[in-house]
Design a protein around this nucleic acid. Structure first.
Length: 559
RNA sequence: AGGGAUAUGGCCAAGUGGUAAGGCAUCUGGUUUUGAUCCAGUGUACCGCAGGUUCGAAUCCUGCUAUCCCUGCCA
């Protein structure tokens, strides 16, 4: 049999079916994909879907995936973005084939291919201005008109195109166009622009060029040059596939059965956030968020800062699959993916975010004892951590009510017993309030014979609350995040900023276990009963923890 | 007489003529020093609608409807 690559076990999708078919028919001997971002913004979770698709396919079929910057529009692009994109792809755990590619690497070749089209009478320099071009293009229902420059001879076009390259024309004065069909029902086939004049410094090529190729021209040829087999993009490029095919089929180097072919899948839409670069730019520029890596942003760097892991993002991509259906994905799928990852890998810790004092009155004054608590109750191999217990503790305000509101209340109340996690069973006796009636201190007694075991008399204590010993506790800031928008599809609003969630960030000041003093940046922890948190990767001179996601809560909704 | 796509349970998504996978969510039990995890169970899916072909259709044919995309010298 053949030793051609076969896909490893993964959920199937229509693209895999196409690849399997292509391989079976010997159309290609191996698979090469590419991830082609334009460096004009930060990558977001939608890009992560595409990255996982392209790099994942390459991994599974033992092929390769190129990282190629689609840098054909210097006016909008910047090195800051290329750096962030490289960082994000690497962080996700993918390796690109060989060196990083840039469309701008091929500018000279593009020029030669344009010359080939001119020589074949398939491209011409057009002096219609932008407005005239639009008028000549016709409309969705009406065919366009041919440009008066359409029948210029190849020789003359060649000279004109050379002059364009040499800087002999002003911006907007002329463009190079493909000669296709002004009556095509595909608007992109009505003599599309191939090159425009732009006196702009390019982040890769400097001032070497003053003409820049358009996406439709550059993309398919780049794929061809790189030997890409399956060129995957999103649905809005479906019409563009016609020009993709036309160009490759009219260029001698690429008009072969094993040339690249484009396939489109649907982009990711996530509820309660936005994915468009325009809107993301706007949020950053209008300072509605704290930069591209604000933990509320759907950017990869934002999610990283929030505490999402590469594994969880890859798992998420796998869970949502690939199809051509316009869809809106619920946040729940993302949250399930990160919880499933963190639940097994995150060390447990206790943190009190809205502290009130708890005084254990029958505990000796001035004494503090050390307790070895499991780092992960389901995984002994993760070892133990040292926590402390003493006469004065902090517990969360939400864990005490003077009077239990109902029979199902599992927290602390006067005359009620509760387990302090990893420590003793206590019973609340009385409490104090401040002038405003806010509870400040709860007084309790503890049962000394319940550390690490249940009471000898067999009484059942259901409730468990967390705590931190007051003299050893470290002050810390907790940033509790919620969805950025209040509506599932903010992009549909006339003013999406009007629908921002004012409660998307709530800052709390509380305490953590002393062992958290040197928590590494981005390290995930489960603050038991509170959720998953990680140390902020930007503010490191004090303890700041970002809430990645809360624990699943089947309680609060039906109480 | 524009064209290109898509329609499978609340949300994703398999399925490619043989009688509807899976995940998320939901709900119900059980375990539990996290109201978490874990375990077990939980859905009448008119497969967009209407016809047709067939012994048999989500899958093939016809017609219709809804939604998305396309008139940048953006990608």
């Amino acid at each position: 049999m053949s030793n051609k690559p076969e896909a490893i076990e993964r959920p199937v999708n229509f693209i895999r079916n196409i690849i399997n078919d292509d391989l079976a028919k010997n159309k290609y001997q191996s698979v090469r994909t590419r991830f082609p971002p334009e460096p004009n913004g930060y990558l977001h979770i939608g890009h992560a879907k595409s990255i996982c698709l392209n790099f994942g396919l390459a991994e599974d079929y033992q092929g390769e995936c190129n990282l190629r910057f689609d840098d054909t529009n210097p006016a909008k692009e910047d090195m800051e973005y290329v750096e962030s994109i490289k960082r994000d792809v690497q962080w996700l755990g993918f390796k690109w084939a060989g060196d990083i590619k840039y469309s701008s690497n091929y500018f000279e070749k593009f020029y030669q291919y344009a010359v080939e089209l001119i020589n074949k009478g398939l491209a011409y320099v057009c002096f219609l201005n932008a407005e005239e071009t639009r008028e000549y293009r016709g409309s969705l229902k009406e065919p366009g008109k041919n440009s008066p420059y359409r029948d210029t001879s190849p020789e003359e076009n060649l000279a004109l195109f050379e002059k364009m390259r040499a800087g002999g024309f002003k911006e907007g004065e002329c463009v190079l166009r493909a000669k296709i069909d002004m009556a095509s029902s595909f608007m992109c086939m009505r003599d599309p622009t191939l090159y425009r004049v732009r006196f702009e410094t390019h982040h890769q090529t400097g001032d070497k060029w003053c003409i820049y190729p358009m996406y439709d021209f550059a993309h398919c040829i780049s794929d061809g040059i790189e030997g890409v087999t399956h060129s995957l993009c999103t649905l809005e490029f479906q019409d563009n596939r016609r020009i993709y095919d036309w160009l490759l089929d009219h260029l001698d180097d690429f008009s072969r059965p094993d040339r690249p072919f484009q396939y489109e899948f649907s982009r990711l839409n996530l509820e309660y956030t936005v994915m468009s670069k325009r809107m993301l730019h706007q949020l950053v520029n209008d300072k509605l968020v704290d930069g591209w890596d604000d933990p509320r942003m759907p950017t990869i760097s934002g999610m990283r800062r929030r505490g999402y892991t590469p594994a969880s993002l890859r798992d998420f991509a796998e869970r949502i699959g690939i199809s051509k259906v316009d869809s809106m994905t619920e946040m729940g799928i993302l949250e399930a993916a990160i919880r499933d990852d963190l639940n097994v890998v995150a060390p447990r810790t206790m943190a009190v975010m809205d502290p009130i004092k708890l005084v254990v009155e029958n505990y000796p004054e001035g004494e503090v004892e050390s307790i070895q608590a499991p780092v992960h109750p389901q995984n002994e191999a993760m070892g133990k951590r040292e926590i402390f217990f003493g006469r004065e503790l902090y517990i969360d305000r939400a864990d005490f009510e003077p009077e239990a509101p109902n029979r199902k209340f599992m927290r602390l109340a006067i005359d009620k017993e509760v387990r302090l996690r990893n420590a003793y069973i206590i019973k609340a006796e009385r409490y104090e309030t401040d002038a405003d009636g806010n509870i400040t201190t709860v007084y309790c007694s503890y049962d000394p014979d319940t550390r690490g075991k249940n009471p000898a008399d067999g009484r059942k204590v259901k409730g468990v609350i967390h705590f931190v010993e007051a003299t050893k506790a470290l002050p810390a800031e907790f940033r509790v995040y919620d969805r950025l928008f209040t509506v599932p599809n903010p992009a549909k609003e006339t003013d999406f900023e009007a629908v921002l969630n004012p409660g998307s960030l709530i800052t709390k000041n509380g305490f953590v276990e002393p062992g958290m003093a040197d928590a590494p940046v981005e390290q995930a922890y489960q603050c038991e009963r509170e959720g998953y948190f990680c140390r902020d990767n930007k503010i490191t001179d004090r303890l700041v923890f970002n809430r990645t996601v809360a624990l699943r809560d089947t309680w609060s909704q039906n109480k």
